[in-house]
Design a protein around this nucleic acid. Structure first.
Lengths: 252, 252
DNA sequence: CCGGGCACTTGACCCAAATCAACTATTTAC
DNA sequence: GTAAATAGTTGATTTGGGTCAAGTGCCCGG
């Protein structure tokens, strides 16, 4: 990064690492906030949100079993959530990109069930849950928003269940690529060319596949000219065919 | 059922099919309601709840894509939730027993993503969601309860994800039996002897296994003297070993 | 600039569970 | 009561993805 760019970023209050960013001027607020909040309500929410220094790759945002206080909106970077099985093996339960919210698993028992780890340098907005709860008694749309946020997490987890229960290795990888692609699209980034923030190991863990299988599927999709892979850089060359593969109509 | 028993049930207002049942006297209210509601608040909640005639086996409670109005607490019987994939194949996403709540998947987009079907004669308490939302603006503990209910659904779905991603067929079946066992225990029913409300096909669909594999695992667990199976009747003969199997320490 | 260690790839082989098939038991319909 | 359909069991065979093994390439520290 040049000095010039650094200066530009310091001046731009929407820079993800700028401490002065607020919900009102955040580029991500159509994703992470209810669209229907009044300006003054956004300010009230903004006032309870805490923004700390960025996480470095590998840093924990919180650990499973930590007492639950807050949910977190990802502002920049990417994180993974994982649970530990009884035998200490990890299960990646999700990847979270800017605008998405982690930590809602902790509400049920006042302890997080997942650990959350930064996949790359990441900044987050901490939303103290009990203050948000109080606020949402006064702002019905905020209450509604959190119900919807949690409901969406439920439906997404159920889609993963379907993926793991019914789909082949190739279908799983294709579905993951499409998911990341569309989430990038929602943030006005390219839906066709992007960098995977997670390792092959994380992908395999998440999708219930070995790292070898993940590697082989990437190679296969590349040979079929559906995608081009260069390390973590992905270029989707044939979106329609990728969708076809994800839907399992390989030869119908 | 004898006439005598029928008379007893008609007199007992906690009978699950009695129209006059209320949340205040419902045996299940420690499961389905927040423990910390005041009597008068329970009455206010009770007043918005609607109780219709029981569903018969195979009846739909609602269908995927129906407009979302209500969540439903199961009062008696059992239901399954399922989604339809793009190709019309079903994925069972959960089984719901008395005291448990279905329908929270519909909140995100104001349409249900699952269909819910009765596995046997079942009665439900309909909770109109928008009235519940209004009420929970006035009863903070009710708001809290619904956040917790949804959070629990999230953590349970994530446990299923782990099961599908990491466990063998035997581990999956063992885990399902333990889940049903403990949910029966919570309702003061036997944790060791119970009737499975769902078919082998439903079990296989839910756990990502074929019906043949489900059948073989039941036979195998029976030969190992861990359970006794008589059609849908299950007797857990060795709970510790069943737990060991579910945890995957088959020979450690 | 070099060396040690991850992250990833590729190939050979194996196995748990799917598939295919034949059968029995149980419900449902008439 | 009986036929037909449905649910479940069991065996033989196949196969997709796991396991094991041997690499390559890349990054990071000194």
């Amino acid at each position: 990064m040049t000095i010039n760019q650094t200066i530009v970023k310091t001046k731009d209050s929407s820079c993800p690492h700028d401490k002065k960013v607020s919900c009102g001027n955040c580029r991500l607020n159509t994703i992470c906030l209810p669209i229907s909040l009044h300006i003054e309500d956004i300010d009230r929410l903004n006032n309870i949100i805490q923004r700390g220094r960025p996480l470095q790759k590998g840093d924990y945002l919180y650990r499973a079993n930590d007492p639950f206080d807050s949910v977190y909106a990802i502002r920049s970077g990417a994180v993974k959530a994982l649970t530990l099985s009884d035998h200490g093996e990890e299960q990646v339960t999700g990847f979270y990109l800017p605008g998405e919210v982690v930590g809602m698993d902790g509400i049920a028992d006042n302890r997080y069930t997942n650990s959350v780890i930064a996949l790359e340098t990441a900044s987050v907005c901490e939303i103290p849950f009990h203050r948000m709860e109080e606020l949402s008694l006064q702002i019905p749309n905020l209450q509604r928003h959190f119900f919807q946020l949690m409901s969406r997490e439920i439906t997404q987890d159920q889609q993963v269940i379907t993926l793991l229960s019914k789909s082949s290795a190739e279908e799983r990888i294709a579905a993951l690529l499409l998911s990341i692609s569309s989430r990038n699209g929602r943030r006005q980034l390219s839906a066709n060319a992007f960098r995977l923030p997670m390792s092959r190991t994380d992908i395999g863990n998440y999708l219930g596949l070995t790292i070898e299988t993940v590697s082989r599927i990437f190679t296969r999709l590349q040979k079929q000219d559906v995608i081009a892979v260069d390390k973590k850089e992905i270029l989707i060359k044939n979106m329609d065919q990728l969708r076809t593969i994800a839907n399992g109509d390989t030869n119908c």
